[in-house]
Design a protein around this nucleic acid. Structure first.
Length: 678
DNA sequence: AAAAAAT
C-alpha cells in the first residue's frame, strides 16, 4: 500500500547504507560445519587483549553513521516529531505496547486510516526515535540532545510506581551466590564507574535509576569488556539484560561504528543498498521477551549513536523493514523473523561483533535449534573467533552445553543462584486441589489476597486460559489472558493492561512463563502445574523479583504426580514448607520407579548450572548418547577443554583425532538427539 | 501433551 511511497521517501536518505569500507573476511560466507570449525592449531586463545577486541568490530569508519544521517542533531527539525515516539507507524510495533498513553504514543488514530500518509510527510518520519539519535563524527561520540518527553517515555517520571525500577540494587542481591569459572576470570566490578564503563552509558544508567550492579552485572561487565565469551546461568530478573547491554553498549559508545563490509550486495548492486549491518545481535525466544529487551536497549542507547531495532513475527514486516532501513546497530530478534529478513536480503550478519543468545534453553525447547544454527553457522555471521558470543540460559542441560561448545570460545562460565532455591524471596505453597475444585479455590484466593499487586495465573492450555479468564471476568475480577492463539496485538494489550495494573489478574500459558520481567507481581498461581519442573521454576520466578517478596501457590492433585519428586526436591532446596500429602504421593509413586519418562537425569544433568567443562562425564549422563562415542570418545561427552588441561580423555582442539573417534559428531543422533536420549 | 515461532 503506502509501502512503496515510503520506501521511495526513505531512499533519499538511505543511499548511505551502501557498503563502504573494506571489511576483512567479508567475502566469507560459505558454511563451515561446526566440527570443522574452531579446530585451528591448538587451543583457542586463552585470552583476548581487551584493547584489541573492539578493534575487530567497532572502530572502523562507516561513512556517515546511521544515526547521524537522519536523526542528525544538526538537521533542520521541521514537523512535530512525527509519531510521538518517532517510531514507524505501526500498530503492533514493539515498544508501542502502551496504547493508553497518548503522551508517549501520540495519536494512534492518525496512523489508522491515513496509513503512511502522516508518516511520509516530510521529515517527521526521520526524527529521532528517542534513542540512538546521537552520532559518531570524527572519531568522537556526539550524543544527541536531551529530550524531556523521550526521557519520560523511556525512564518514567521519578517516583512513578508504575515504572518501579527492576533488577536493581536491593540488598538481597548480595545474598545471591555467583560462581565464575574458566581461564583468567576477570575481577568483578562493584560499581558503575568509568573505567571500565563509558560515561554516556553511565549517565543513561543513572537515568534508569540503577545504582549498583547486580551480581550478574558485576561479573559480566568485565568479562564482556575484556573480550571474553560468556556462558551464564541466570534469570532475567537478576539483571541479566543489563549484564549484556551495558558492556556491549559501552564498547560501542567508546569505539564507534564499524565498517560495513564492501562485498555486501556487491553482486546485486543495482539500486540502493538497503541491507542493514547490525553490530550486535540479540536472539530471544518469545516476542514479548524480545520486546522487553528492546525497551531496555532503547533506554541505555538514549542519545547515543547506537540505534536499537527489533524484529519479530506476528507484526507487520513492512514497518520493521523501514525501521531497520533507518539504521540498525543493535538488533533484537526472534529467530524466525530474523531468518526471514536474512532471506530477503535485508539484514546481513557479516558485521556482527556481539552475539547474544538469551534464554537459550527455552529456545531449544521451542525447537529453534535449526534456525539458531542457521543464523550462527549457516549465514554470514563471523566465525566464533571473530565475534564475541554470550549465552544465557536458566539451566545447563547437555544440548545447551553442546551449543556452548560450538558457539563459544574459551568462555567464562557464570552461575547465578536460581530463583526459588537460593533466594528465599518467594514463599511457595502447594495445595491439594482436585480439578473440579480449582475454580472455587481460585476465587477464594483472589478474594483473600486483596487488591495489592498483580496476580499471574498459569494454566496448561490456551483454551483453559480463555475459559478461565472469561470465568473470572464473569465473576467481576479484572482479568485478561495471554496465549499463543491470541493475536500479537491482543497479547501486547493484555500484557500492558497487566503491567499497568488495569487488569491486575493475568491468565497465561507458557508463553509468559519465562523471561518476562513484570514488576509488582506479588502472586503466581500455578492453576495447572507444568510437567517440567524447570517450567515451574521459571513461572514462580515471575514474582519475588528484584529483591521483592512474592507468593507462589500451586494447585496439586494426582494428575501432577509426574512432577512430585522434582517439586519435593525443589521445595526442600528452597527451605519451603513441604505438605504431607506431597511426601506420601511421592512415596506412592516410587513403586514403579517414580520417574516417569525422564526423571532420572533431572536435577543433575538437566538442571545443572555448573561449569561442566571440568566435570568428568559432565555432559549429563555418564555413557553419553550414541554409545559414548559421539565426541570422539570423550567420557560422557564432556565439553572439550580448550587448554587440554582437564585430563587426557577430553579431546582438545589441537589433538589429532579428537573428534574423529566415533565419528559421532555429525551424527544426527548426536547433534539433535539431546531431548530424546532417554 | 502443550506451547511457541515466519508466512
Amino acid at each position: 500500500m503506502a509501502d512503496g511511497l515510503q520506501m521511495g521517501n526513505l531512499s533519499l536518505n538511505e543511499s548511505q547504507h551502501a557498503p563502504a569500507g573494506n571489511a576483512p573476511g567479508a567475502g566469507r560466507a560459505a558454511y563451515i560445519p561446526p566440527h570443522l570449525r574452531q579446530r585451528g592449531p591448538g587451543p583457542a586463545p586463552a585470552n583476548v587483549d581487551p584493547a584489541a577486541a573492539p578493534a575487530a568490530g567497532f572502530g572502523g569508519p562507516r561513512g556517515p553513521p546511521g544515526g547521524g544521517k537522519w536523526a542528525n542533531a544538526n538537521a533542520p527539525d521541521f514537523s512535530p516529531r512525527g509519531p510521538a515516539n518517532g517510531k514507524p507507524p505501526m500498530t503492533n510495533q514493539i515498544g508501542q505496547m502502551k496504547p493508553f498513553d497518548p503522551q508517549a504514543y501520540g495519536h494512534p488514530g492518525s496512523y489508522g486510516g491515513g496509513g503512511g500518509g502522516s508518516y511520509s510527510g516530510g521529515g517527521g518520519a526521520q526524527q529521532g526515535r528517542g534513542s540512538g539519535d546521537g552520532q559518531w563524527r570524527d572519531g568522537k561520540h556526539i550524543p544527541g540532545p536531551a529530550n524531556a518527553r523521550v526521557e519520560r517515555e523511556l525512564f518514567g517520571v521519578p517516583n512513578d510506581p508504575s515504572k518501579q525500577q527492576t533488577g536493581i540494587n536491593f540488598a538481597n542481591y548480595d545474598d545471591i551466590p555467583v560462581e565464575a569459572s574458566g581461564n583468567d576470570v576477570p575481577e568483578p566490578v562493584s560499581q558503575f564507574t568509568n573505567p571500565p564503563l563509558d560515561d554516556h552509558l553511565i549517565s543513561n544508567i543513572k537515568l534508569a535509576s540503577y545504582v549498583i550492579p547486580t551480581p550478574v552485572q558485576k561479573y559480566s561487565v568485565p568479562i564482556v569488556m575484556g573480550g571474553r565469551d560468556l556462558m551464564a546461568c541466570a534469570q532475567t530478573g537478576s539483571g541479566k539484560t543489563g549484564g549484556f547491554l551495558f558492556p556491549i553498549l559501552s564498547q560501542a559508545f567508546k569505539n564507534g561504528p564499524s565498517a560495513t563490509p564492501a562485498t555486501a550486495g556487491g553482486q546485486f548492486s543495482y539500486g540502493r543498498q538497503r541491507k542493514a549491518y547490525p553490530t550486535s545481535l540479540i536472539l530471544a525466544p518469545t516476542r514479548e521477551l524480545v520486546s522487553q529487551i528492546f525497551d531496555e536497549a532503547r533506554k541505555f542507547a538514549y542519545r547515543s549513536w547506537v540505534r536499537p531495532c527489533v524484529v519479530y513475527g506476528g507484526a507487520d514486516i513492512g514497518s520493521q523493514l523501514r525501521q531497520i532501513e533507518r539504521g540498525c546497530d543493535l538488533l533484537v530478534a526472534t529467530p524466525g523473523r530474523l531468518v526471514d529478513l536474512i532471506e530477503r536480503g535485508r539484514i546481513s550478519l557479516a558485521n556482527i561483533k556481539y552475539l547474544v543468545l538469551d534464554e537459550a534453553d527455552r529456545m531449544l525447547d521451542m525447537g529453534f535449534e535449526p534456525q539458531i544454527r542457521r543464523i550462527v553457522e549457516g549465514e554470514d555471521m563471523p566465525l566464533v573467533q571473530d565475534r564475541q558470543t554470550l549465552m544465557f540460559s536458566a539451566t545447563f542441560p547437555r544440548d545447551i552445553q553442546m551449543l556452548a561448545r560450538d558457539f563459544l570460545k574459551d568462555y567464562i562460565f557464570l552461575s547465578v543462584g536460581r530463583v526459588g532455591s537460593t533466594s528465599e524471596n518467594i514463599t511457595q505453597k502447594v495445595e491439594y486441589v482436585e480439578d473440579a475444585d480449582k475454580r472455587s479455590v481460585l476465587l477464594d484466593i483472589l478474594h483473600t489476597h486483596g487488591s495489592t499487586g498483580l496476580t499471574l495465573i498459569f494454566v496448561e492450555t490456551k483454551r483453559m486460559a480463555d475459559s478461565l479468564s472469561d470465568f473470572l471476568i464473569n465473576q467481576r475480577f479484572p482479568a485478561t489472558a495471554i496465549h499463543g492463539d491470541r493475536t500479537q496485538r491482543e497479547r501486547e494489550r493484555a500484557l500492558e493492561l497487566f503491567r499497568n495494573g488495569r487488569c491486575p489478574i493475568l491468565v497465561a500459558t507458557a508463553v509468559a512463563a519465562r523471561g518476562l520481567d513484570i514488576p509488582n507481581v506479588t502472586h503466581v498461581i500455578n492453576y495447572d502445574l507444568p510437567t517440567d519442573i524447570d517450567d515451574y521454576v521459571h513461572r514462580i520466578g515471575r514474582t519475588g523479583r528484584a529483591g521483592n517478596t512474592g507468593i507462589a501457590t500451586a494447585f496439586f492433585n494426582r494428575g501432577n504426580r509426574g512432577v512430585v519428586r522434582d517439586l519435593l526436591e525443589l521445595l526442600k532446596e528452597a527451605h519451603q514448607e513441604v505438605p504431607a500429602f506431597l511426601e506420601s504421593i511421592a512415596r506412592e509413586g516410587s513403586g514403579f520407579g517414580g520417574r516417569g519418562g525422564r526423571g532420572g537425569g533431572r536435577g543433575r544433568g538437566s538442571n545443572a548450572t555448573r561449569d561442566m567443562r571440568r566435570v568428568p562425564g559432565g555432559m549429563g549422563m555418564g555413557g553419553g548418547f550414541g554409545g559414548g562415542s559421539a565426541y570422539g570418545g570423550a567420557a560422557g561427552g564432556s565439553t572439550p577443554s580448550y587448554g587440554g588441561s582437564y585430563g587426557g580423555a577430553a579431546p582438545s582442539y589441537g589433538g589429532g583425532g579428537g573428534y574423529g573417534g566415533g565419528g559421532g559428531y555429525g551424527n544426527p543422533s548426536g547433534s539433535s538427539g539431546p531431548s530424546s536420549w532417554w
